[in-house]
Amino acid sequence: MQHAKFIARTVLVKDGNVDAAAKVVNKLLSADGIFDTFRRTRFYEKPYQMRRRINYQKCKAVYDEDMSRKIQFILRKNRKDPFPGCY
């Protein structure tokens, strides 16, 4: 898909703060995984490496989901004992 240049992946500089704008660009590209893809595709990734990476990512996604659910459970509000097990 073609994106309009200077509209997509663009951050306007506000109040002459160029450094902050550059950091925002970096942060957004990193969050979208563009840097990761770029770094990964510099050299050929052998099929066994791709399998291993994807399996690792699957496991990590499952773990992260469970862990975030646990954290949300502990941090939930409107409960009788706010910190169970702590006095």
């Binding site: 663009t10 951050v11 500089v13 704008a21 660009v25 893809t37 595709t41 050299f43």
Partner: peptide, 22 residues
């Protein structure tokens, strides 16, 4: 005076086969 910063790093999930790993 720098008005905007754009990134146009060429990035494809499925590029032509890159060179072999170092």
């Amino acid at each position: 005076n720098i008005v905007s910063i754009t990134d146009s790093t060429r990035c494809s999930e499925t590029p032509p086969r890159p060179r072999k790993q170092r």
